[in-house]
Simulated assay, not measured.
Amino acid sequence: MSAEAAARPGASAGAARRIRAVLLVWVAALAATDLAIKALAEALLSSGATIDLGLINLRLLYNTGVAFSLGAGLAPWIIVAATGLIIAGLTWYALSSAPSMTGVSRAGAALLLGGAAGNFIDRLDGRGVVDYLHTGWFATFNLADAFVTAGVALFILGTILSQRTRDRD
Rank of each mutant, 00 (worst) to 15 (best):
D167F: 11
A16E: 06
P99R: 00
A13E: 13
T83I: 10
W137G: 13
L55D: 04
S97W: 15
A117F: 15
G71N: 05
N142K: 08
A67N: 12
L30A: 05
G151Q: 02
T33Y: 14
V80S: 14
I121W: 12
S47N: 10
D34M: 00
T135I: 15
A7E: 03
A31I: 01
G73S: 09
G54Y: 13
R164G: 05
R106L: 01
F147T: 00
A15G: 13
A29R: 00
A150M: 07
F138N: 13
A117Q: 13
L90M: 10
Y132N: 09
G151Y: 02
F147D: 00
A98W: 08
L111H: 04
A88L: 15
N63L: 04
W26M: 07
S100L: 12
L30V: 04
G136S: 07
N63A: 01
A88Y: 08
D34Y: 01
A7L: 07
L95N: 12
S69P: 02
L124W: 06
I121C: 05
D169Y: 15
K38R: 07
A107R: 09
L113P: 05
A36G: 05
D52Q: 06
T91H: 03
I156N: 04
D34P: 00
S12I: 00
G126F: 13
L60R: 03
V80E: 09
L154P: 01
A5S: 12
V148K: 02
L44V: 11
A39F: 06
R18T: 12
T165W: 14
V25T: 09
F120D: 02
L95V: 13
N119F: 14
A67V: 11
G89R: 07
I19C: 05
G136R: 05
L45K: 06
L112H: 01
T64Q: 11
G128D: 12
L85W: 10
G54D: 11
W26L: 12
L23Y: 08
M1V: 14
P76C: 08
G84R: 04
V152T: 02
I37K: 01
V104Q: 15
